[in-house]
Every structure is written in structure tokens, then in C-alpha cells.
Simulated scan of single mutants.
Amino acid sequence: MFPYLGLKASTDPRQIDERLQYQPTVFEFYTQADDVTPSGLTHLRAMIDKVRNSGVQAIVIHHPMSYLHYHNEVAVKASQHPRAYDFVMSSTENLIEVAQEKDVQLLVHGAYNEESAKIEAEFGSIDAARTLAFKRLDYFQSLGGDHVMFENSISPIFDFGNPVVDQLVQQRGYRLAFDVSHAFIVLRGDNTLLQESMRLLGPQVVHYHLVDSMGMTHDSLPLGTGAIDWQGAASMMNPKATNIYEIDLNDQYDSREMRESHHYFSKIWRQEHDAM
């Protein structure tokens, strides 16, 4: 029953073993560029089997965040950045194949956090960059179907809470991964607007990244230590979705901050739903 103890880790067996001892219901692999090489994909498949054999059924692969020290943007011009374009396309296609083969989910970022001025300088306008990003996401959706989902960003290309983007993802019927902190930062710490976006997109959300923030920068705080109204947010969440706690850890081999966040939010969820 939602919320789940959802933990993330790299494909490092030591990190995975630390998470599995707490018997999570949801496990998310935070992959890197090395994980989508031929040997990396073989290892990823083995680690998926390891997690599933431990009893975890809900498994998510998080597409690599960066390539060549830059964010792995789906809105990348093939003519100007051919290596980055080849990577984002081939890695996503290969991971969709793994997701379908292993019957797991692939999470792809619609964008990351490029500044508006940089986007406009390269594409001419935000709209032009967004059009390219949605074209790529349409393709990945057609390829991956129910095995792919798209996560919101801080970038204006794919920022939930932005009425234009919210409308576009509704029109396309995308399966969504809703990062609560990203939307909160986009909305400059406005809990009312956050909850409205969560309500609007809730029926399409299949996975949540639960993480706190002060609403200013990408701070990735444990739940209850930032400015998000979690009781209000809980009332807008889709209980049919899965979730993980995407918290910055002091030690990558100790998931304590994620587990403490789950304890905090579980109490909030019970309070909210017991009152209904």
C-alpha cells in the first residue's frame, strides 16, 4: 500500500545489498553512462535479477543523467552535438529493450536544469527546444509503451507546474514520474501551485520521487526538513503509483536518510487518510 519503502542505488552490488536488507517494495537503479555499454547492460540485467530474486517486484531504471560531463538532454541537436545525440538515442533505446525484456520500468528525464538564456541561445526559443524534446519523448513512448515514463525537470523545457507543459503532457497521455521537489522549485516554493499541478497530473503519474526542498535550488533534502507541505501534497497523490525517496545521502552505502523519510511520510499519509 502506498507509500512504499522505495530505495535507489547504483548498480554497485555493495549499495544494492545495503538497500535489500531493509526489504524495499520499490527499487530504482540510478544508472550512469558505463551502465549502457555492452558489458554494463549485461551487469545491469544481472543486478535486476538479483533485486527481483530478493522479492522486489517494482523495479525502475533511471536513465543516465549525464554524458561527457554534460546533462543527458533529450533536446539535443544532432548536427551540433552528434556524440551526445547518439548517446541519448541509443542508450534510451537499449534501456527500453532491457525494461521490456525484464518487465521493469524505464524513467527518462524530459530535461534537466539548463538555464533559459542558454536554451534560447542554442535553439532560438524555449518553444523550439520544447518541440524537439516532445518529439523525442513521443518516439520513446511509441517504442516503450507501458515500460517507459517521463520525469519533470527544473528546466523550462519540461517543468511540471508550468501550465503549457502540464497541458502538453495531458494531451499526449504520457506516463509520468513526478518529482515533487522539482515542481516545488519551478513554482518558487508555492505549495498551493504545487498541489494544483499534482492534482491535475495525478491520474497520469505512475511513479513519484519524494524529496524535500526549500524551493530555491536542487537541494534534495530529507522529508520534513524543507518547505514542502507534505500533508497537502499527500492529498493530491495517486495512490496507485509507486515511489522512491530520492534523497542526497551522506554515505552512498547507508540509506538512512531515505528510510527516515519513509518513516516521516508514512505518518503523514496515515494522518491524511485516517481523517478522510
Rank of each mutant, 00 (worst) to 15 (best):
G224A: 03
Q100S: 05
H63W: 06
D212H: 02
V205P: 13
H262I: 04
E115S: 13
H207Q: 03
R136H: 13
H81W: 15
S213P: 05
D251T: 02
F2S: 04
K118A: 09
F184H: 03
S91C: 04
L176D: 12
S79R: 13
M216K: 15
W269T: 00
Q141A: 15
H69F: 11
D12R: 09
L106Q: 07
R259H: 06
Y70N: 12
Y264D: 06
L132H: 11
P13E: 14
P156R: 06
A183D: 01
I126G: 02
S220G: 05
F158V: 01
S39V: 15
A46Y: 12
Y264L: 10
E114Q: 14
D17Y: 11
V108W: 02
H63G: 06
R83S: 15
E115K: 14
I247P: 12
L221D: 13
M47C: 14
E257I: 01
F140M: 03
R130M: 11
D274K: 00
P156I: 06
Y139V: 08
V206S: 08
V26C: 05
L20D: 12
V211I: 13
F265S: 00
D138A: 09
I16N: 08
F134I: 15
T37P: 07
E18D: 12
D219C: 08
L95F: 00
N152P: 06
V169E: 01
T131D: 14
Q80L: 14
R270I: 01
N238K: 04
N152G: 13
E93T: 09
D190P: 13
V26G: 06
D254A: 15
A129L: 03
P163S: 04
E272Y: 02
I157P: 04
P64R: 02
A183S: 13
H71V: 09
V165E: 00
S142Y: 03
E260K: 11
E120T: 01
Y208L: 00
F29A: 07
Q21V: 15
S213I: 00
F134A: 12
S79T: 14
L20M: 11
Q195T: 00
E28D: 10
L193Q: 15
K77A: 10
L176S: 12
Q32I: 12
A9Y: 04
H63C: 10
R175D: 05
H81E: 15
G6F: 02
M258H: 03
K8L: 01
S142M: 07
R188C: 07
Y112C: 03
E196N: 14
V104H: 11
F140P: 00
Q170F: 07
I96A: 09
S39G: 09
A78C: 12
T242Q: 01
R199H: 09
H182K: 07
Q271H: 02
T225N: 11
Y30W: 13
K77T: 05
V169A: 03
